[in-house]
Write a protein that binds this DNA or RNA. Structure first.
Lengths: 204, 204
DNA sequence: TAAAAAATCATCTTTTTTAATGATTACGTC
DNA sequence: GACGTAATCATTAAAAAAGATGATTTTTTA
């Protein structure tokens, strides 16, 4: 019984690369590809692959959202996250939304095969690099509260404390408190460093 | 006479994708690939391809810098920029540093072939999407000067004006001037927005 | 080489952020 | 129901950034 594989990625070269890597694998059945979330969902109405390789950055919606939808509609399909970035926040998000594994786009053929076979069996798979990055002592970035995240986003948009307080219906001192805990949690010296770190970690 | 093609990209899947797309083209000679700038330069010491497909994001240095170096050392080689992003700033930068063309990673085989043939003949090539984006009214982001970029980087690292002035051996008012022009050019209301925009545009 | 652009410095004012401390209320979990 | 965390608000002061204007010296580039 072959493993049906489907790929969703907005870059044709990447799709072609994966197809080329996997084309001689007799245990796999290349079911096709989609370059956006919509056509992926259309495909799934007609066919049910065993494994979907899913890029986290898609033109119409994020891979994270698509992953969630796919898992709700077709729980049997194993989703394997795929991206160029090695960022805890994104990976964690992807896994929380039903992905069974995560590989980077510089993965070798062997890694990719191992990942596909693993998730098809229902086993979790992370590529080596992803594992290493997840092993790093978790900085406090993951522990941002809901409110702090709201404030962070507004700061990044360029709002001042006064504007944020108005928008969130809280007092300026409160905004300041959140601001201070954000600086602490991100180990940032000031706003610039905060936004810089937060953006790179995918929190913004 | 075949066109010698070399690819520099840090993602194995992309390399494989390009190779697969081009493998049946009899007019091309696949000379190999590199996954970072260093090994690209090593390769060029031994062989001279006609065209290099060069990703703008490399692990060891930016494709923009690599492009500059390659053109200095081997002016005859045509460099074709390659990336997932369609951003004027990056494209312009790449072209200013000697690239003859620019295609996105979702290019089709036909586009890619046309691009390679064009730049090999010394003709400029932009993919359709790139052309469209270049036609848009240019925001001022492209015009960041060398000094402004230095200041921007230090701001993002969390340095204050005083610290920056010390580091760059300039006065605090001067740092302030650069800071203000950065805010203008990025159309940012404050530091937070500046760093946010700059990071997303790849300037940091 | 002349014009344009970049880089430099200055002064002064206002706004915003950061720091330091302390405290109350709400909420979910064990 | 106790406990910890999150969320809220307050006061005061110092540091930093932002805004407005003007001006000189290098560099680049047409």
């Amino acid at each position: 019984m072959k493993i049906g594989v489907f790929v969703v990625d907005d870059h044709y070269m990447v799709i072609e690369g994966i197809r080329s890597l996997l084309q001689n694998e007799k245990t796999l059945d290349w079911m096709g590809h989609a370059t956006n979330a919509e056509s992926c969902l259309s495909f799934l109405k007609l066919y049910e692959p065993d494994v979907i390789l899913m890029d986290v950055n898609l033109p119409d919606k994020s891979g994270i959202d698509l992953c969630k939808e796919v898992k709700q509609l077709y729980p049997a399909i194993a989703v394997l996250g795929l991206s160029t970035f090695n960022q805890q926040a994104i990976i964690k998000n992807m896994m929380d939304n039903g992905a069974l594994g995560y590989v980077l786009k510089n993965a070798t053929k062997e890694e990719l095969m191992e990942a596909i076979i693993s998730v098809q069996k229902g086993k979790v798979y992370y590529s080596l690099e992803v594992l290493n990055s997840l092993r790093k002592p978790t900085p406090n970035q993951l522990l941002i509260t809901r409110r702090e995240k709201e404030v962070l986003l507004l700061i990044a948009e360029g709002l001042t404390n006064a504007e944020i307080s108005e928008k969130l219906f809280i007092s300026i001192p409160t905004v300041n408190t959140h601001r201070k805990s954000l600086l602490e949690k991100f180990e940032a010296k000031n706003t610039a460093m905060l936004i810089s770190k937060a953006t790179k970690l995918g929190s913004v």
